[in-house]
Design a protein around this nucleic acid. Structure first.
Lengths: 213, 213
DNA sequence: TTGCGTACTGTATATAATTACAGTATATAA
DNA sequence: TTATATACTGTAATTATATACAGTACGCAA
């Protein structure tokens, strides 16, 4: 990750502040006025370089087309990966297809470096099938997107357009999805039905409410 | 808080999704195209009403001047307040004064409505003293700022400039801070030492990494 | 029925904002 | 020295976008 020059940092900082404060990104002219540039081409030059270094994305031809991709916090050198924004794309065990055409309802932001590298998304948990490992209704499960998981790992699995969070075991002839709650039976999927299931990812984190504690 | 009509809700939803996805709010025309409106004045009418109901703010004369003020989730009637950004202001049980002049190291963003109303901050947990209730090193404890807690609640307590997370019990002559781990002894504070302790808040949530699961 | 708010269409105009082209100045590395 | 990248100025053209005005249609409450 290349570093910004101090001028670029100032411009980038102004863009993020404007976007957060006003709700809309600034125009080139607004940036120019802020920094007393006589020509907006000074701004264009800056934007080009800031974008090249990956901090923003510029949408050509679109007004205010400056999309902030990183936060200033993520510039700390000791942090390798960053994923502030984790989209919450639905409820798990609540009947809705995932991934395809997913529009995020809301977002979660975790501290830089809290999770490892990878693609993450989040699902709100409904049901008690994993209560023995302290995952309960209302919690938000953070899932690392991966298409396989190791035996025994907790995975978000999609079966028949429903997403469920289960402990995953693959045997030679079947897949077993085990609950962490004796009230819920294990789900056994014979090899012939593999085409109906899909692994969405692996449980990577959990956001819990502590109302009782 | 007035409710949106279903059409308005659709338009509002499109605006929030566009803003989150593209990083910039949509233009009137982009909205019109999305909903197959032949005239952007249909959009203008919608925006006027959505803004009137407080969901967005329209910046007149500015392109893409649609600022989202609420999230769709906050429309659930049972949710009163929202607080996306929770500052992480230090480590708990790690010797550092809290609250005064606290500069946040990083921020946490939880879904709107996930927590109740109140002032929140977060602390990174070090140590295993609460492992029995699944709070472990590296987790991030979300604390609701309050100066008293009820008996038995888990509280962030400051003693001698160190913050600790303990189960709080107040008796007539003493305060006991109990760990949720038999390896750690309870801390007993006699009435005469009350001036040395302070309640920072009550445990409200927990963000956990699930590396093992 | 009348009136009112929501939900649109259509066209024309004004202005907001980006792009293009042609430069200058100042560092810093080869 | 000669590049090469950053950091700007200036003007003109073009396109993107919002606004203004004039309507139509429908449901709903008085």
């Amino acid at each position: 990750m290349e570093n910004l020059t101090s001028k670029q940092k100032n411009v980038f900082s102004y863009i993020t502040k404007h976007t957060n404060k006003e709700g809309i990104p600034p125009t080139l002219d607004e940036i120019a006025v802020n920094f007393n540039y006589k020509s907006i081409n000074a701004v264009r030059d800056h934007l080009r370089l800031i974008a090249k270094k990956g901090y923003i994305k510029v949408h050509p031809g679109k007004s205010r087309g400056i999309q902030v991709l990183k936060s200033l916090n993520s510039m700390r050198p000791e942090q390798l990966s960053c994923h502030d924004q984790i989209p919450i794309i639905g409820k798990i065990a609540a009947g809705a297809p995932i991934f395809v055409n997913q529009e995020a309802e809301d977002h979660l932001k975790v501290p830089t470096g809290f999770l490892g590298s990878g693609e993450y998304f989040a699902l709100q948990v409904t049901g008690d099938s994993m209560k023995n490992i302290n995952i309960n209704t209302g919690d938000i499960a953070i899932i690392r997107h991966q298409i396989t998981v190791d035996n025994g790992e907790v995975a978000a699995v999609i079966l028949e357009n429903e997403a469920t969070l289960k402990r995953f075991f693959k045997f030679t002839d079947r897949v077993e999805l085990q609950s962490e709650n004796p009230d819920f039976p294990d789900i056994v999927i014979p090899k012939s039905d593999y085409s109906h299931i899909r692994i969405a990812g692996k449980l990577a984190g959990l956001l819990t409410r502590k109302i009782d504690a």
